[in-house]
Design a protein around this nucleic acid. Structure first.
Lengths: 163, 163
DNA sequence: CCTGAGTAATTGACGCGTCAAGCATATGCC
DNA sequence: GGCATATGCTTGACGCGTCAATTACTCAGG
């Protein structure tokens, strides 16, 4: 139970258990990210959009002719179909997007951003990016940004690993 | 609008706008954290607990006599009261916690973890910590952990800043 | 053609989180 | 004491996210 573990001769994963330091960092990471996320959400909410709304409209606004197949949109933003369906339903009620039949596959749906949606997105965009810059980009040095990149790569490698 | 901005003589925040690199890192950070969070949630779900359940029970299990005032619990885990109320309601239905009148302030509530809750928490704990170790701690070098610490400090400083 | 397997998207149920409103009790001030 | 105000907690409404089930269509093989 002590810090030194005589049963594992320091091969493989450093220790069998998390060190106090690792655990602290983990909690800190979670806390910080959650607060950051809350802050960004609150910022967007001031113009009446959620983070999901923003992401959907960003993707649509960048797409050719401002529309995408529902499944392409889901893949682009990494959402499950059902999540997207629910979200589009809510967005459609607010006239931010429109759903149309897909001409090439009658099972499919094409999602388009409306003029109103585009206006709303453009209005939200500048303050949102400013907030990201303020809380994230301006907080870090170029050096730290690089370090973060390698940290995220390392974690993503773990997530991608089949084991 | 180009990359070089002649109006700001490179003082203050490096650029007026986010660089492509910063924006990419931001998206990467968000994506990675969300996936990490999903993974941890799924892991806990295998033993029938949510992340919230785990956090609440962890805190209670560490408290003197396994109980806390509702507001102390909320502060300890950084939740709003209403969130905690809702969550405790759900946990109480599943007999993981119990709410009792506070003897010193009749407005107050004391929350205690039940035996069943404690059993459930202990059962969940080892695999959960193993997952945190696997996806997070083992992915990073000691060096990276230090870098992450300073990165998180920098962001937290921004979040704490009044402006 | 017709059938069966696969695919696109939606739906319903339910847990979760936030906001605003509400209720009961405590407390400071006259 | 009695009132205003503050505090501790709960509630209801509603947006959000996941899972499992469902509907509607496509398409390959016979």
């Amino acid at each position: 139970m002590g810090t030194m573990d005589t049963t594992t001769p320091s091969i493989g994963p450093a220790q069998r258990r998390l060190t106090a330091r690792q655990l602290t960092m983990w909690r800190s990471l979670m806390d910080t990210m959650e607060e950051l996320s809350r802050r960004l959400t609150a910022q967007l909410q001031q113009v009446g959009l959620s983070r999901g709304d923003y992401l959907v409209m960003l993707t649509l606004s960048e797409a050719a002719r401002h529309h995408l197949r529902s499944s392409e949109l889901a893949d682009a933003i990494g959402w499950q179909r059902s999540r997207l369906s629910h979200h589009l339903g809510r967005m459609e009620r607010r006239r931010l997007v429109r759903r149309e039949e897909c001409p090439t596959d009658s099972r499919g749906t094409v999602v388009a951003i409306t003029d109103e949606g585009l206006r709303s997105f453009r209005l939200a965009s500048a303050p949102h990016l400013r907030a990201v810059k303020h809380y994230f980009a301006d907080a870090l040095t170029e050096q730290q940004l690089e370090e973060l990149e390698s940290i995220l790569d390392a974690v993503r490698a773990r997530l991608a690993d089949p084991d």
